[in-house]
Every structure is written in structure tokens, then in C-alpha cells.
Simulated assay, not measured.
Amino acid sequence: MKKFLLFIAGLVALGVLLTNLGPMVLLGVSVWLLYVVFKQFMKSDSTAGKIGWVALGLIILSVAVSNIYAVIGLVAAYALYVIYKKMTTRKDESVVKSNSSDDPFTNFERQWAELNK
């Protein structure tokens, strides 16, 4: 049942991620463009050039803020990663612990532990 619920949660996270893929790309491009505008602003020597770069930076910043829903897509991507890690981890099933074993060494260890109490 747990694996089924993880699978359903993974499908929901994948749907949210695919839905927000466009805003995620636009947010990435906007952040990159803001970096380029900042670099050009720092290189500019004239006042008019600096004013132009600030105006362009504000326009790009407004585009970046309008794609803030991309953060939901990033959260969905992280949730998908966590769900994948939980579904692929395997518990060590090769070690079987049994109290009613006929193995003399296991019985000895159990009896020794009872004697030391």
C-alpha cells in the first residue's frame, strides 16, 4: 500500500512539474538575462547607458517575478526526487532474525545475554 501511495504521489508531482515547466524555463532565462544586464551595467561608462540598462533590468525583473509559479515546479521536482529515492531503497532482507532458531550459536548468544542480566 505504501508503494502505491508513493507512486500516486509521484504521478501528482510529475504532473505539477510538467505543468510548471514553461514558467521554470522562463524564470531561468530571466535570471540569466538579469545577470547579463548587471554585467553590462557595471561595464557601462555613460550615465545614459546605465539608465538604459536599469530600465531593461526592471523589465526583465518584472518578467521574472511574473514566473514565480516556477518555484512550485521546483518543489515538485524535489518531491519527485525524494519519492524516487524512497521507492528505490531496499531493505536488507537477506538477514533473517528468528528467536526460535535451532542454531546452537544463536541459542548460546541468547542464553548468555539472559545470564548477564
Rank of each mutant, 00 (worst) to 15 (best):
V25H: 10
A48V: 07
L58E: 01
I59A: 11
L26S: 06
F38T: 08
W53Q: 02
G22W: 13
I59S: 10
V36F: 13
G52P: 02
Y35H: 04
L27E: 15
I51H: 02
V29G: 04
A55Q: 04
G22F: 12
V25P: 03
I51G: 01
D45L: 01
K43A: 03
G22K: 10
K39H: 12
L33M: 12
G57E: 06
Y35M: 03
V25F: 14
K43F: 11
V31Y: 15
L27F: 08
K50R: 14
A48P: 00
P23S: 08
D45A: 12
L58W: 08
L27D: 13
L27S: 13
P23V: 12
L26C: 01
M24N: 09
K43P: 13
G57I: 04
K43M: 08
L58I: 15
G52T: 10
G22M: 09
A55P: 05
G49S: 13
L26W: 12
S30A: 14
V37Q: 03
V54I: 15
L27Y: 09
G49Q: 14
G49T: 01
G22A: 13
G52V: 14
P23Q: 05
L33R: 14
K39W: 07
G57S: 09
W32E: 06
V29C: 06
L58V: 15
Y35I: 05
S46W: 02
V37S: 02
L58D: 00
G52C: 05
W32F: 11
S46M: 11
V54E: 01
F38C: 06
F38D: 07
W32A: 12
K50E: 07
F38H: 08
V31F: 10
K50F: 02
V29N: 09
G22Y: 14
L33N: 15
G49H: 03
V25C: 06
L27A: 13
L34V: 02
V29M: 09
A55G: 08
V29T: 05
L34N: 14
P23A: 08
L27W: 10
S44K: 15
P23Y: 08
V36N: 09
A55W: 09
D45F: 00
G22L: 12
L34D: 09
V31R: 15
W32T: 03
M24S: 11
F41L: 09
V29L: 12
V25T: 10
L56E: 07
Q40R: 10
S30F: 01
A55V: 07
V31H: 11
Q40H: 09
V37R: 02
M24Y: 05
W32N: 06
M24F: 07
L33W: 07
M42R: 09
L56A: 14
V37I: 15
S46K: 14
Q40Y: 13
S30H: 04
K50L: 04
G57D: 02
P23H: 05
V36C: 08
A55L: 10
A55Y: 10
K39T: 02
S44W: 13
L58T: 07
W53M: 04
G49Y: 02
S46L: 09
P23E: 08
F38V: 08
V37C: 03
V31N: 07
Q40F: 14
K43C: 03
